[in-house]
Simulated assay, not measured.
Amino acid sequence: MTVTLSDEARQYIQAFDELTGVTPVDCLIRDERIVFLVPAGKMGTAIGPHGETVQQVEERLSESVDLVENADDRAAFVANCLAPAAVRNVTLSEQGGSTVAYVEVPQADRGVAIGAEGESIETARELAARHFDIDDVQLT
Protein backbone atom coordinates (compact mmCIF):
# COMPACT_ATOMS: atom_id res chain seq x y z
CA MET A 1 0.00 0.00 0.00
CA THR A 2 1.29 3.43 -0.94
CA VAL A 3 1.00 6.30 1.51
CA THR A 4 0.97 9.81 0.07
CA LEU A 5 2.73 12.41 2.18
CA SER A 6 2.30 16.17 2.03
CA ASP A 7 5.33 18.42 1.66
CA GLU A 8 4.88 19.46 5.29
CA ALA A 9 4.89 15.81 6.43
CA ARG A 10 8.06 15.15 4.41
CA GLN A 11 9.74 18.11 6.09
CA TYR A 12 8.78 16.80 9.54
CA ILE A 13 10.06 13.33 8.62
CA GLN A 14 13.36 14.80 7.47
CA ALA A 15 13.77 16.79 10.69
CA PHE A 16 12.88 13.71 12.77
CA ASP A 17 15.44 11.63 10.85
CA GLU A 18 18.15 14.26 11.31
CA LEU A 19 17.61 14.42 15.07
CA THR A 20 17.04 10.73 15.81
CA GLY A 21 18.73 8.76 13.05
CA VAL A 22 15.39 7.00 12.52
CA THR A 23 13.38 7.54 9.32
CA PRO A 24 9.64 7.40 10.05
CA VAL A 25 7.39 5.34 7.79
CA ASP A 26 4.55 7.87 8.03
CA CYS A 27 3.63 11.19 9.58
CA LEU A 28 0.21 12.50 10.59
CA ILE A 29 -0.11 16.21 11.30
CA ARG A 30 -2.73 17.17 13.86
CA ASP A 31 -3.79 20.52 15.34
CA GLU A 32 -1.64 20.21 18.44
CA ARG A 33 0.64 17.26 17.73
CA ILE A 34 2.54 15.28 15.13
CA VAL A 35 2.34 11.48 15.00
CA PHE A 36 5.31 9.59 13.56
CA LEU A 37 5.08 5.92 12.56
CA VAL A 38 8.48 4.53 13.53
CA PRO A 39 9.93 1.36 11.93
CA ALA A 40 9.58 -1.80 14.05
CA GLY A 41 12.47 -2.18 16.48
CA LYS A 42 13.48 1.50 16.30
CA MET A 43 11.25 2.91 19.04
CA GLY A 44 13.99 2.96 21.68
CA THR A 45 16.35 4.82 19.37
CA ALA A 46 13.62 7.31 18.44
CA ILE A 47 12.76 7.99 22.09
CA GLY A 48 16.36 8.09 23.28
CA PRO A 49 17.69 7.74 26.82
CA HIS A 50 15.17 9.11 29.31
CA GLY A 51 13.11 10.46 26.39
CA GLU A 52 15.77 13.03 25.55
CA THR A 53 15.78 12.44 21.78
CA VAL A 54 12.03 12.82 21.33
CA GLN A 55 12.14 15.91 23.56
CA GLN A 56 14.71 17.44 21.19
CA VAL A 57 12.37 16.71 18.28
CA GLU A 58 9.47 18.42 20.11
CA GLU A 59 11.64 21.46 20.83
CA ARG A 60 12.87 21.78 17.25
CA LEU A 61 9.42 21.30 15.72
CA SER A 62 7.66 23.35 18.43
CA GLU A 63 4.99 20.64 18.48
CA SER A 64 3.97 17.77 20.72
CA VAL A 65 5.15 14.47 19.22
CA ASP A 66 3.60 11.01 19.52
CA LEU A 67 5.30 7.86 18.30
CA VAL A 68 3.69 4.64 17.06
CA GLU A 69 5.74 1.53 16.31
CA ASN A 70 5.11 -0.13 12.96
CA ALA A 71 4.34 -3.87 12.66
CA ASP A 72 3.95 -6.32 9.76
CA ASP A 73 0.92 -8.00 11.34
CA ARG A 74 -2.41 -6.13 11.18
CA ALA A 75 -3.48 -7.01 14.72
CA ALA A 76 -0.10 -6.07 16.21
CA PHE A 77 -0.18 -2.82 14.24
CA VAL A 78 -3.58 -1.84 15.67
CA ALA A 79 -2.40 -2.72 19.19
CA ASN A 80 0.72 -0.56 18.71
CA CYS A 81 -1.45 2.35 17.55
CA LEU A 82 -3.32 2.29 20.87
CA ALA A 83 -0.23 2.02 23.10
CA PRO A 84 0.29 2.63 25.97
CA ALA A 85 -3.18 1.12 26.54
CA ALA A 86 -2.96 -2.56 27.47
CA VAL A 87 -4.49 -4.35 24.50
CA ARG A 88 -5.68 -7.86 25.39
CA ASN A 89 -6.81 -8.94 21.95
CA VAL A 90 -7.45 -7.66 18.43
CA THR A 91 -10.01 -9.46 16.29
CA LEU A 92 -10.31 -8.56 12.62
CA SER A 93 -13.71 -9.03 11.00
CA GLU A 94 -14.26 -8.78 7.25
CA GLN A 95 -17.82 -8.39 6.07
CA GLY A 96 -19.31 -6.85 2.97
CA GLY A 97 -15.96 -5.65 1.69
CA SER A 98 -14.98 -3.77 4.84
CA THR A 99 -12.60 -4.71 7.62
CA VAL A 100 -13.16 -3.78 11.25
CA ALA A 101 -10.64 -4.29 14.05
CA TYR A 102 -12.33 -5.04 17.38
CA VAL A 103 -9.90 -4.25 20.18
CA GLU A 104 -10.29 -5.62 23.69
CA VAL A 105 -8.81 -3.36 26.35
CA PRO A 106 -9.28 -3.48 30.13
CA GLN A 107 -11.87 -1.03 31.47
CA ALA A 108 -9.09 0.86 33.28
CA ASP A 109 -7.33 1.53 29.94
CA ARG A 110 -10.33 2.58 27.84
CA GLY A 111 -9.63 6.26 28.46
CA VAL A 112 -6.00 5.83 27.35
CA ALA A 113 -7.10 3.95 24.21
CA ILE A 114 -9.65 6.64 23.35
CA GLY A 115 -7.45 9.62 24.28
CA ALA A 116 -8.43 13.19 24.98
CA GLU A 117 -11.35 14.09 22.71
CA GLY A 118 -10.90 10.73 20.91
CA GLU A 119 -7.49 11.60 19.48
CA SER A 120 -5.86 8.20 20.15
CA ILE A 121 -8.61 6.07 18.63
CA GLU A 122 -8.89 8.43 15.64
CA THR A 123 -5.14 8.20 15.04
CA ALA A 124 -5.38 4.40 15.22
CA ARG A 125 -8.23 4.44 12.70
CA GLU A 126 -6.36 6.66 10.27
CA LEU A 127 -3.09 4.75 10.47
CA ALA A 128 -4.86 1.37 10.18
CA ALA A 129 -6.70 2.62 7.10
CA ARG A 130 -3.54 4.04 5.52
CA HIS A 131 -1.37 0.98 6.09
CA PHE A 132 -3.69 -2.04 6.20
CA ASP A 133 -7.00 -1.01 4.58
CA ILE A 134 -8.79 -1.43 7.91
CA ASP A 135 -12.01 0.55 7.71
CA ASP A 136 -12.68 1.00 11.42
CA VAL A 137 -11.23 0.34 14.87
CA GLN A 138 -13.71 -0.33 17.67
CA LEU A 139 -13.08 -0.90 21.38
CA THR A 140 -14.82 -3.83 23.05
Rank of each mutant, 00 (worst) to 15 (best):
R30I: 10
E63M: 14
A108Y: 01
R130I: 09
H131I: 02
S98F: 11
A124N: 08
D109E: 14
T4G: 11
V105N: 06
L37K: 03
T123E: 03
V65C: 06
G111H: 05
V103F: 06
A113S: 13
D109Q: 15
R10D: 07
L28S: 05
G97M: 04
P24M: 10
E32L: 10
Q14Y: 15
I134R: 03
D7K: 12
N70K: 00
L139C: 02
T45A: 10
V87F: 04
V78K: 07
V68C: 02
C81H: 00
E122Y: 10
A124H: 03
G96K: 09
I114L: 05
R125C: 04
L37R: 01
S120T: 15
T45Y: 06
S120C: 11
I34T: 11
L92N: 05
V137Q: 02
Q11D: 14
I47L: 03
D136Y: 08
E104V: 12
A76V: 09
A116H: 15
E117T: 13
D31P: 15
M43D: 10
A75M: 07
Q107V: 14
P84M: 01
I114W: 09
P49Q: 15
C81K: 02
L5Y: 09
A9L: 04
E126S: 11
I47S: 00
A15E: 11
L61C: 04
D7S: 11
F16K: 03
Y12T: 04
L127Q: 03
I29G: 05
L37G: 05
S120E: 13
